[in-house]
């Protein structure tokens, strides 16, 4: 990777991204030792770990988009989703998710998700969180000045809108059910799903046609 460094000098390291066969770092060595011990002691199996990684890496915001598109199209599904998120998601063949709660945006209320203590995120549905979601800046600020943070994402909310921040402090994972743009009523689910981005599911954006 090459770029100019006119403003600062750092011969002590390069900016090459880590390569798969680089020498192991301290933390990689620690992870490897721990993993081998857990397998050796029968706490987990290598195949179990592999399968978990496979599920995590195949999860993506597209799952969330499918869930939302179904909820917009099917009132009974929407009711189940808001009452019992994990059952609703299982009925679409996704999961298991652990305890999964979906919070609904309405004309009066806007929801946004954070984990102030670490980076809890519904990974089994949406995959890995974006880097900013794990940043201290987002985590500290969105609970204290959500409107300012959302404005930085380009989302200006009216003073009349109630802002609800959900802090994922325990084992419950959250997803936002965005509002359906009114002009998309009656669209097929596949087309609706195309409107729903990852940020809509975290609450830092709204769905637009």
């Amino acid at each position: 990777m090459s770029h100019d460094h006119d403003d600062h000098d750092h011969d002590d390291h390069d900016h090459r991204p880590p390569q798969p066969d680089d020498p192991v770092s301290r933390y990689e060595a620690l992870e490897q030792a721990l993993r081998e011990l857990l397998i050796e002691k029968g706490v987990v199996t290598a195949d179990g770990l592999r399968r978990t990684m496979e599920v995590l890496e195949s999860a993506s915001p597209e799952n969330g988009a499918r869930i939302v598109a179904r909820a917009w199209s099917d009132p009974a599904f929407k009711e189940l989703l808001l009452q019992d998120g994990q059952a609703a998601v299982a009925s679409l063949g996704m999961g298991p998710t652990g305890r999964f709660v979906v919070v609904e945006n309405t004309p009066e209320r806007h929801n946004v998700i954070v984990c102030t203590l670490c980076s809890c995120y519904p990974r089994f549905v949406l995959g890995f969180p974006p880097a900013w979601y794990k940043s201290r800046d987002y985590r500290a600020r969105v609970v204290h000045e959500p409107r300012a943070v959302l404005a930085e994402f380009g989302l200006k909310l009216s003073d009349d809108t109630e802002v609800v921040v959900s802090d994922s402090t325990a084992e419950i994972r959250y997803m936002v059910l965005p509002q359906q743009p009114p002009e998309t009523k009656g669209w097929p689910e596949e087309k609706l799903a195309g409107l729903i981005t990852r940020d809509c599911l975290i609450g830092t954006a709204v769905a637009r046609a």
């Binding site: 609970v143 000045e145 300012a148």
Partner: peptide, 22 residues
């Protein structure tokens, strides 16, 4: 209520923050 949590909160009086607590 955000105004209960942060005395300097800037935003609507109905704004809230929710957490899962034991």
């Amino acid at each position: 209520r955000q105004r209960e949590v942060w005395p300097d909160y800037r935003g609507g009086p109905r704004d809230t923050v929710a957490a899962d607590l034991f």
